[in-house]
Structure formats: C-alpha cells, structure tokens
Simulated assay, not measured.
Amino acid sequence: MPLPAVRLMTIVQILLVSLCTSPVATGALAQPMPGQAGPTEVGVVTLEEASVPFSVTLPGRAVASAQTDIRPRVGGMIEEIAYEPGSRVEAGDVLFRLEAATYEAALAAAQAQKTGAEVAVSTAEATVSRYARLEGTGVTTGDLQTAQASLAQAQATLSAAEADLQTAQLNLDRVTIRSPIAGIVGVSAVSIGAIVTANQADALTTVTATDPIYVDVAESSARIMRVRAQLSSGALQPGDRLEAVLTLENGATYSDTGALVTPGLEVSTTTGAVDMRFQFDNPDRMILPGQFLRVQITIGQRRAVLVPQRATERQSDGLLTVYVAEDGVARQVTLSTSGTYQNAWIVTDGVVAGQAVIVDGLTNLRGGAEVRPVPVTINAQGVVEDLSETPAVGQ
C-alpha cells in the first residue's frame, strides 16, 4: 500500500539529518581549504666562499713549430725519391738524389787543376830559393824579384784551384737532397726523371715539424687591462705560469696542457687584440697545422661564491635567478656571474656566503612561499643527496 505523501516527506527529512550528523560527513566538512597546508619541504645548500681558477676561453689556430720547402740547390735529373710520403724524417735524412755524373766529372777536373797549381807553386818556390843563393853571382836582383812574383802568382792560382775544388765538392754533395729539419715529409711534387734547376721557385716537397706544435690566440687589450687591475688590487692571485687547455674540434679536451712561449708585445691596429703563442706536445699528431681550436687559459686563483647550476633558472629576459631560504620563506634573487666552475656558477653579486640556496623541491615554488629547509649536498655529477648520502628525489 503506497505511503501517504506527508509520511514520505518526513522519512526523507530524517535521512538528510542523519547523513549531515554522521562522522564521515562531519570529517569531510572539516577538511582545510586549499592553500591552508603547512610549509613546503625543500633541500638547501649553504653557500661558501671558495678559491677557484680564473680562466678565459679564446679561439686559437694551430701552427707548425717549423716548416720548410725543399728545393734543389743544383740542377739535374731526379734519379731517386728516397722517402715515403707522410713518414717522419730526421734532420739530414735523404729525400732526393739527382744524377751525379756531371758533378763527379767537374770534381775530377777541379782536382786536376789544383794538382797542376800545386806543381807550379813547388817549381816557383825552387826557383826563388835558387835565385836567392845565386844573387850577385850570375843572378841579378831583378831576376830574383821576377821569380818571387812568379811564386806569388802560382800561389794565387793554387788558391783559386782549391776554391774551385771546394765548389765542385759542394755541388756533388748537393746532388743528394737532405731534410734540414726533423718532421713529417709531404708528397713529392716531382717524379723520377724530372729535370730540376738550382733554387727553382717550385718546391719538391715540404717537411713540417708538428711536435711540439704552436697554437696562436688573440686576446682583447681591454680585457688584459681589466685582468691587470684585478692582479694589482689583490682580487686575483697569479699562478706560477699561464697554462692552456685545448678543446679539439670534436669537443674533446686535449690531454696535454700548453705553456706560453711568446707573450704579446703589441696591439693590433685593426683588431685591438694582442697575439700570444702557446706550445703543446703533439707526439701522436692529434693537432694539425691550420686547425681551429678553443683555448682555455688559466691566469690565477680568486675567491668567489659558487652557486650550483641546478638551483638556478634563466628568466625570459635573460636574467639568472635563484631561490634562497630566509626565515622560513623562499625569496627569489637575481645573480651576476662571471663564468662557471665545475657544476656551479661563479657569482659576483646577488648572494653571499652563509645564505641557504634552495636546490631541491623547486617545482611550482614561488617567491614568498613558506618553506621548511632540509640540508642536502650535491655530488660531483650535480645530483642532490641528503647528508647521509642517500640520493634525494629530484625536482
């Protein structure tokens, strides 16, 4: 039998009152409104002042420590090419040989002339000696003087013959073309049977010394003056010597460090830069002349505040910002930097040593938010760890 409408309304009212006074409903209504939660837990690192290297990075170009074009000093036909292209040669090693028959004949003729001159000198000396003994007894003083003049002429002829012999010997020696320096020899520009001339314009080949190798860089004179000002003020402590580290064209760091060999002595009138030259060992020929490289030059050490890079954020206007925890509140500050060191920014303004920088829990963090700082550390790979060295949850 259907219930009357009045009784049905009474039952509905009783159910509604029961639901509103139940523990479940009461708990749901008692939940705090969004925004009433407690402070956000964040990982912080206390900033410290550290001594960091002061370095500059400059473009550089590799230059051979020595390079020479090989040209013949006498003419003739190429009889032998005595090297393998691309191989290493030492100073004095044979590169080419020319046909020697002509120069051997010239040497023999010069030797014969010298022998004849020596005989003439010997005869003239004997005549002078005999005339000197017989002077006044059949030999006049004039005869003696004439004999002495003949001796002098014979001696001069001998000297000329000796010079001709020396020239002939040099020409014969120069038939064998040797390397004047140690280095890597290039491809021959001639073949066997080619005719060459003395001191011709075209080189037969080239020998290049690549170990050690030079790297030339150019630094702005204005920055050099700023660095000198820092050195004078004591803000920058100079090292024992300038050291250079190379970054190769493939992005790899070269294993050997370079040393300054030629400091800049003048400023270019066109670029306003000062040229400097560094020397690197290059036994494996990893660096070739003409290569473009990046050179990081360490000038000295300076005291600076280091801020972990993972704690910072680059704004749309280019400013670099970081959050610091102060009195339980996150405050956003703008940093001024002068480069990087390992996984940190070198900061010159914006924060000071002793401040707590937020490095973890940055997601959705805003300036003015309440925070609960938890000390953490950052390892060499830039990963956040708590003080017990257990990796923390990332951002």
Rank of each mutant, 00 (worst) to 15 (best):
G43E: 04
G43K: 02
G43A: 05
V44M: 00
V44T: 06
V44D: 02
V45N: 08
T46P: 06
L47I: 06
A50C: 08
S51A: 13
P53E: 15
F54E: 05
S55I: 06
V56F: 11
V56D: 10
V56R: 12
T57K: 01
T57G: 00
T57M: 11
L58D: 10
L58V: 14
P59N: 15
G60K: 11
V63N: 01
A64N: 14
A66K: 15
Q67A: 13
D69Y: 11
D69E: 13
I70T: 12
I70K: 04
P72N: 03
R73V: 13
G75W: 07
G76P: 09
I78M: 06
E80Q: 05
E80H: 04
A82D: 15
A82G: 08
A82I: 12
E84D: 10
P85C: 04
V89L: 00
V89Y: 01
E90L: 09
E90S: 14
G92I: 04
D93S: 14
D93R: 05
V94F: 00
V94E: 13
L95P: 02
F96H: 12
F96P: 11
A101S: 07
A101R: 06
A101M: 14
T102M: 14
T102Q: 09
Y103S: 05
Y103M: 09
E104A: 15
E104P: 14
